[in-house]
Write a protein that binds this DNA or RNA. Sequence first.
DNA 1: CATAACTATGAATATAATTCATGGTGTTAT
DNA 2: ATAACACCATGAATTATATTCATAGTTATG
Lengths: 307, 307
Amino acid sequence: MIELRHLRTLHALQETGSLSLAAERVHLTQSALSHQIKVLQEYYKLPLIRRQGHAIQLTEPGKRLVQLAEKVIKEVQAAERDMARFSQPTGGSLRIALECHTCFDWLMPIMDTFREHWPEVELDLVSGFHADPIRLLKQGEADIVIGSENKPQRSIVHHPLFRFEILAVLAPGHELGKKRVLHAADFANQTLITYPVPEERIDLISHVLTPAGIVWQRRTAELTIAILQLVASRRGIAALPNWGIKSYVDHDYVIARRIGTHGLWSDLFVSTRKETAALPYLQDFLITSRDQCFTTLDGIVPLRADE
Amino acid sequence: MIELRHLRTLHALQETGSLSLAAERVHLTQSALSHQIKVLQEYYKLPLIRRQGHAIQLTEPGKRLVQLAEKVIKEVQAAERDMARFSQPTGGSLRIALECHTCFDWLMPIMDTFREHWPEVELDLVSGFHADPIRLLKQGEADIVIGSENKPQRSIVHHPLFRFEILAVLAPGHELGKKRVLHAADFANQTLITYPVPEERIDLISHVLTPAGIVWQRRTAELTIAILQLVASRRGIAALPNWGIKSYVDHDYVIARRIGTHGLWSDLFVSTRKETAALPYLQDFLITSRDQCFTTLDGIVPLRADE
DNA sequence: CATAACTATGAATATAATTCATGGTGTTAT
DNA sequence: ATAACACCATGAATTATATTCATAGTTATG
């Protein structure tokens, strides 16, 4: 008999396209999923997946079950939100502080979803730039911080979100575009176009250029699109998350290059106070954030050490 | 983590109002359900049921989960019908022969549901009265027979539907109404109002009156309402299923009395040829029939010895 | 008041899911 | 080519979990 477990697996399979990735998502081994699928196929006496070399394809019956899974999982989540409301009927607030400007891009739709899910929770953005956003948490001026800091601290919990690559962004035909990979020295005397934040908060500078003793120039812009405009107009080069620039790269508006042999990677965390971490709506925010990020953002990698 | 199993249990609980009855429905012991509920309550840290003496009441959170269960179970069933279609994409036919006239009353809505579920299956009623409906099955003139016959036969499967009580129906103020229970002798020289079928097919006659050697008169009518009209007009008395007359009794249109100390009971079966029994749409017909009967008909009892 | 009917519960059992260990197969890179 | 790798399937072992069994407590019923 089919169970939610199977539906959750099928759903993950649909989203990841591979058994082993799906297994991570549902916190099981690849073997477990393989067995699950086998059981389902025997139960319905129908093939659910077809193997195309390595890639896994869903058959028509498989797709039908995935469709079921999507509907059912949504219903279950909605019901569980209501269950959470029963145990804790107060309103609560979720004031979000953002360390990373680009994150606005994906945060907006998530906030929309959240507002639908938890109309009684006051949702707010803590505006302006903050040198030490974690302090906002401690001082109770924000309820969650989205940033890359994960230094363990008493009273603070860092929930891993995802890992992403920061790419150098160049105008098409830029001299440096000839290289597949850029190294610190390549940035010498270039103009960097960055968000208006302190240098130490820009990974390219703090992790790559400063250690190598490279000299550069800098110019700032508030918005991702503005930065891309400047890059395309050959005013300089930028370093941005791969998912933030994907569509521009696909349309040959700019080109992107890896920074350093293994790439320049950054981790994103959702940090909260310990008390806040247990709140059902915070849990829900985390789940929907991961969910939406992994489905909408290209090339991001799950972070280990889940709570 | 919640599973479909739990939802099926909650759904059964909702419909039966008792753990032990619900347990029968889902083919588990009462203990199993008790444990399941306990697990769910611990998982959500919320009470799902409240005990009012023997009766079990759902709490608000409990009701919310039942609501989820109803939605989800419907979705799952729809998906499983589609799965069945994948394995056996041909049309098929379901020609129904009815032994018991009153059954029209509950069969109609079930046929409507079936038509929605299986538009590609030809649904038909085998009309007219048939002395030996099982022969219709064997001769391939019907695909299922709804009746009380359950004599084991090679090539025929009798799927139990439910057990119901046949009550004597009298006009209000009728002389016999003074007794709580009617016995064979009470029917002496009364006029029985029955469907126009052979005497041996009328349980009251074959099981009660004939064995006791009672003499009676008889008059027939085609429709249940017509029979009730005649009874109310003091033209005679009838013997009808409790669920067929419930609303008339409730409105004091007629009165009903038990026949014999333990009542006169009859069992209803859905009989098919062996090959037909395995067809997915036949299985679905059985499930929806039982489901709808148990939710809409009052006072019917599940039959043991399920397949 | 005795009996029946229903539920809760801890312990025992049965069942089923998951992991482990491994082998097979297709993909990629040197 | 072919080694190295990544991904999946599978049987056996293991673990986890659901269910039953046995029983006691409670409420209804005659």
